[in-house]
């Protein structure tokens, strides 16, 4: 299992379109992937869960990956979050 804490820096956070991009990227991987924000942990491949919890600019989230491609999944998702502009 691999995990990393990352701060959300883009303006709209993981609401709406950036959230959709994040979930689509997570779905590319075979590993189980979760996002933890505060006390809440949810499946990173579910846009409904992501939007329900709501991840905004300034939030620190932990991305947790477990499976055969966990390293690649973690790197890709962190890179995606860092590259979000809107």
């Amino acid at each position: 299992m691999k995990s990393r804490v990352i701060e959300i820096v883009n303006k709209t956070g993981l609401h709406t379109r950036p959230g959709n991009l994040f979930v689509k990227e997570a779905k590319q991987f075979e590993s189980e992937i979760w996002v933890k924000k505060g006390e809440e942990q949810f499946n990173a491949k579910s846009l409904l869960k992501l939007m329900k919890v709501g991840v905004s600019r300034g939030d620190k989230i932990e991305i947790i990956c477990e499976g055969p491609d966990e390293d690649k999944a973690l790197d890709s998702l962190c890179e995606l979050i860092a590259s979000l502009e809107e």
Partner: peptide
Amino acid sequence: QNKSAIVQVV
């Protein structure tokens, strides 16, 4: 939108 409307829909 982000704090209330989306949350209600989902």
